[in-house]
Nucleic acid binder design. Sequence first.
RNA 1: GGCGACGUAGCCAAGUGGUAAGGCAGGGCUCUGCAAAAGCCCCAUUCGGCAGUUCGAAUCUGCCCGUCGCCUCCA
Length: 478
Amino acid sequence: MPLQLYNTRTRTVEAFAPLREGEVRIYVCGLTPSAQAHLGHARSFLFFDVLRRYLAHRGYRVTYVQNVTDIDDRSIKAGIETGQDYHAIVEHFYAEFKESMRKLGILEYDFEPYATKYIGEIQQMIRELVDGGHAYVTRDGVYYRVSTFQNYGRLANRNVADLESGARIEVDENKEDPLDFALWKFAKPREPSWPFEPYGEGRPGWHIECSAMARALLDPPGVGFDIHGGGADLIFPHHENEIAQSEPLMAQPPMANFWVHGGLLLFDNRKMAKSLGNFEPLSDMLLRHDPQAIRWLFLQTGYRKVMNFTEDSIAAAALGLSKIKTAYRLALARRDADPPPQRSEFDEQMEAALDDDVNTAAALAVLYEFAATAPVERLRYWLTILGIEPNDSWVAEPVVELTAQFVGRLQAALDGEGAAGEIENLQPHEAIERVIAMRAEARRQKDWAGSDRLRDALQRSGIDLHDTKEGTTWTVVG
RNA sequence: GGCGACGUAGCCAAGUGGUAAGGCAGGGCUCUGCAAAAGCCCCAUUCGGCAGUUCGAAUCUGCCCGUCGCCUCCA
């Protein structure tokens, strides 16, 4: 069974097949870094990261492009108001975004095109549109003539008449039609601009960059690429406009075979926005929460569904993930008994879940079912496909949280046991091991009271003990 | 006003015609000197409401109630 994937273009779930044998080309609309990114951005990009990893698992060579809109009205305005270069602002926020993506375990993109690095390609496309009668020049820019594109509104299931009657479209007497949109904006004083003969100096409109960069990087011949993605809020007008700009110039539309959109993330049941007072930068949120728990939380919900974020939900996800971490640790301990690598029921069920329109929630259920019995190598493999790579923190005790003061605290807790001196000058983890050894000795002598006092001392110092058949392990608690 | 999504146990959530996955929380048991951890088991006669189609509906149709999104920059 091939991968089944929902296609916004056809509004159905379809069997995925690449246009070129063995190769999948994906373009995802990236960030406009004129402000800090938030968790909603993370949800969207996290989904495309999983899709990409799974396509690679299915044996496809994946080319993943995610653009950077490094010029827009907001960054220009902010630059003028604060006296900074608009591009310095963009670079600052984008660097912060990339750091967040790294923490979330998102794979590096194959191409990360900046709009301002593709001015030539953008201008070339605008020329072709003007030459073909799809665009016209006004006093303040070059506009796309929507009336020349028959399929306008098809992706978003809107018809032109309804759109035109809508009261929310601003009236602009420069435009032939209210639906027409800017391809090129002529420069006003102090605005960054590029020369563009014969039309006039200025900068690209928002939508044209994606059309131009997707063509340049994924589809020079104009016969389409495989997947175009983004958040559901981009369907209209952004993706509709991209199609309108691209398809009249193509040898063989559609622009993208599959259009894939991720559901939006809400906070307090509202879209996150500064004006609503529910905005928290992604970088701050990553300071408060385990990035893998955030990914786990998103994996629990269908990618197309609107999802409401709450602090309770992330806490529950973190607990659920911790169970998997423990299972992984146990799997590591019994790895000698693992069967030789071969396809198993576990693999079958994971693929069945992910083949079904990337049903990560179902995949997680499979993971929970097999976590206690699967070979550690398979467990690691599938966790990695989901972007949850087991790292050192999964197996090693988090000694980093223990400072030199910890030993002092432990000594104080041991006061009266005559054991404080035993751990003098030891590193935190050595001190813990020492006390565990002392407790083991006490237990051997059936000195339960003494054993329990040592355990209590560790507990008061923030260390929980777990007795297993293989020996005693410990974890740091709050 | 137009377009669309959603409403499943205390909470999160999968399932979209064949008789309710999974996670968190809760309860029980096993193991253990005790505890913790872990493992096993239990936990919705029912899917916002009301009609209808069907042998059969959480899943399809209609109406109603509620929540949200897009139509303007937006992942």
